[in-house]
Design a protein around this nucleic acid. Structure first.
Lengths: 93, 93
DNA sequence: TAAATAGTTCAAAATGTTTTGAACTATTTT
DNA sequence: AAAATAGTTCAAAACATTTTGAACTATTTA
């Protein structure tokens, strides 16, 4: 695999292989600006503990950018990771 | 998600989220012609039971085409599925 | 026709992931 | 200062995936 880290490649696909996380990603894409974890969690109706778990996984995979401001954590999609590990996956195998 | 089946979308990412299956896919891509399950299994050194399990998952996800000829099963990548569910994923969210 | 080969199926064991609730930290509001 | 809000951490429970070996079917070779 060209230029990609195999461990991250698998973390990316694992992160995408879940309906809750796909909903999160969907919401973040259509928001197209930073939103708080709480806002996302409310919209897709998951507990805050579960949200915390899923946001962490997405973050470790590099699929989201996260920034903590005071009490709140703001997240947005990291397009570069999608490009490198998803969009260009087939080409780079 | 535009034009994609959510259940298949998740099956695709689950199928890709495993090191053994990534090796299989890698081998199939560089072979660029049909190869038997046995040949792949030998190259990446997995038991035939395990191979059978992984090839089935790839097949159910639509990522490989499979054809049984007599004793042997020949497989190849299904590029259309990669295009639709992986390469175009971000665009279609 | 017996033995070998390719692959599948099944159930059990081993591993890994996700959800839950309680307890926690840090910040903001009353 | 107390209460409320946003999010994290932890351990346990619930659930899902993967590996293993034995038994099986079907085909080919000796």
């Amino acid at each position: 695999m060209k230029n990609v880290n195999k461990t991250q490649q698998i973390a990316v696909f694992k992160a995408l292989a879940d309906p809750v996380r796909l909903e999160i990603i969907q919401y973040l894409k259509q928001s197209d600006h930073e939103v708080s974890c709480g806002e996302v969690g409310r919209k897709i109706d998951i507990s805050k503990t579960s949200g915390s778990y899923h946001f962490k996984l997405l973050q470790v995979a590099g699929l989201i950018n996260a920034r903590k401001e005071a009490r709140e954590k703001y997240v947005s999609l990291n397009q570069a990771t999608f490009d490198k590990y998803v969009t260009n996956f087939y080409k780079n195998i």
